[in-house]
Amino acid sequence: MSVVLRLDHLTKDFETGVLGRRRQRALDDVSFELVRGEVFGLLGPNGAGKTTTLKLIAGLLRPTAGRVSVFGSAPGDRAARAALGFLPEQPVFYDHLTAEELLVYFAGLCGISGVDRAQRAASVLDEVGLGAARRQPMRQYSRGMLQRVGLAQALIHQPALVILDEPMSGLDPIGRREVRELVLRLRDDGRTVLFSSHILSDAETLCSRVAILARGRLVASGGIGDLTAGRAGRWEIVAASLSPAAAAGLQTQAARVTRIAHGRYSFELREGDGPEPFIAAVAASGGSLVSAVSTRATLEDVFVERVS
């Protein structure tokens, strides 16, 4: 598999304070690589260094140490940027332009010839669901519509590597589903997608591999299956007809208990505990079993464990 993007021991310090004499480390010795055709998720809580990483890849920041290689070139090279499409976080554009005018302008900056610019702009606006509003000034756009324009401009030159910083931000549930479908279409076209998110369900649905950042450090990376493998599942038991005293008694055998309704409780057992003794305890307390479901370890479990 050909490597599309490689980060080698990437470190970034920002100068702060009077005369920039203090340094704040935003990214510390981060390395990972992306291969052609994969969807890769960069995860982490706010302030983890996700946006800094993406800006270093897009050539908007320079590394303090380490290096970034995009198709073998440095991010500042024109060849690297011609192969890369970038959606910044919460993009803002020019109020006086329509989405169509903006995309025709950006298509020109990407070297697309005059006659093809309008055609390409129309096609990509249709792709992100903005075809009908393409001649409306962007000052009238909602947050979600601007996010779609941001996606469209990242795709205008059909880049082989697409970098999306929080692509679901500002989108309603339908918009989020459309973006998920778009990312999968890009993958099916053989393009590589790197996106940052703190919405773990999106990463779990879309990504073949993820990297988790916390406080500027890479705390986990790999396939989602690999990261969650080897972790015992948990059992979730729902029981009814329990008195508050009986529920309190059962709580000592569970990791977590949630009251659903009068007499009905959900118990999450500890990792590795089997369900049988607990079901027997429910029956002995005068309760009845409603359901017993085994839940496998999720990316959220990995995320919470590594980040905290």
Partner: peptide, 8 residues
Amino acid sequence: YSVLAKPV
């Protein structure tokens, strides 16, 4: 951000 990420 969007402009300078283009090959300009």
